[in-house]
Amino acid sequence: LSRKHIMESINGSLTRLGTDYVDLYQAHRFDASTPLEETMHAFADVVRQGKALYIGVSEWTADQIREAHKWSKELGFQLISSQPQYNMLWRVIEEEVVPTSEELGLSQIVWSPLAEGLLTGKYLPGHEFPAGSRAASEGVSKFIRSKMNDDLLTRIQNLKPVAEQLGLTMPQLGLAWVLQNKNVAAPIIGASRPEQIAENIKAGGVEIPAELMAKIDEILGDHINRDPKQTLADQPGER
């Protein structure tokens, strides 16, 4: 997030996109090797030059967001978004990032709302991974490897009656759950077919009753990670 890379990146993006500006330009992960002052001054110049309308961050801690917000107010631009991982299993933003964001006027655009496919229910305990699935690929992520066990997969299958009670598919339940958090503006969804997009958007506007939210917590149990320190632990020390 040095000035050099911020400027190179926005100019390269605008060239590739064939546009004069982007609505939102986000800092991916915190850069401990660059002074925050340098980063925020560069973002201010990007906004003043009309190359981006608003600035956001991704996977920053509450303290980092607060400091960045202070700089943005001093420099005259708006910090509006945080892009963290968030789903039924990964809730590390709830204790600190969400309250801080609500206080400062940011909202969340969350990635991995279905835990990289785990919450779709397509992975069955004691079965081979479905052909073409993320878990079956050579590039399977650290998250899936660490979570893929029969106890968790069984618990996820036990969520199906909850989805059925709401008239939802399992992916719709996962997306609707994320949207119950009022600080979440939108989940980032991935789709391999247009029909998946049409199905996913049906999760919008669904209200899950408190008793079913509690039932989901009960089913998933100790597999839920709520540790706010995890965000800092996952940040790269050097770039």
Results as ranks from 00 to 15, higher is better:
I189V: 15
I219L: 13
R16L: 12
Q196S: 13
S112Y: 08
T231D: 00
D45C: 04
S82R: 05
I219Q: 09
P228V: 03
E59V: 02
L119N: 06
D217M: 04
K122N: 14
A135V: 14
E207V: 10
V92H: 06
L124T: 08
Q235N: 13
A136G: 03
R134Y: 09
T15F: 00
A210C: 03
P113M: 06
L232F: 13
L118N: 10
T34W: 12
L104C: 05
A52R: 12
E199Q: 12
K51F: 06
S58Q: 04
S137P: 06
R91C: 07
K70G: 14
Q196N: 15
V46F: 09
D222T: 13
A135N: 11
L173M: 12
Y54K: 11
Q78S: 12
L179T: 01
E102W: 02
R145K: 15
I6Q: 02
P113Y: 06
E199L: 03
Y123S: 07
A163I: 03
Y123E: 07
E199M: 04
I6P: 02
L179D: 01
F129P: 10
L124E: 01
V57G: 00
E103C: 01
F143Y: 15
K73A: 10
W177A: 02
I6V: 14
L232A: 15
G105M: 07
K122P: 13
I65Q: 11
T61G: 06
R134T: 09
I144A: 02
L153P: 13
A131I: 10
S133N: 08
A68Y: 08
D217C: 01
S81G: 08
D222Q: 14
T154Y: 03
H223N: 15
W60H: 01
A27S: 12
L152H: 08
Q235D: 02
Q108C: 02
L232R: 15
K215G: 07
R91D: 09
G117M: 05
G121F: 05
N11P: 01
G105Y: 06
H5C: 10
E218T: 12
L212H: 04
L212T: 05
P228W: 01
V57N: 08
Q85E: 07
I208T: 02
A115S: 14
L24A: 04
Q108N: 13
L79I: 11
L119Q: 04
L24P: 15
E103L: 07
E238Q: 14
K122C: 11
A186S: 15
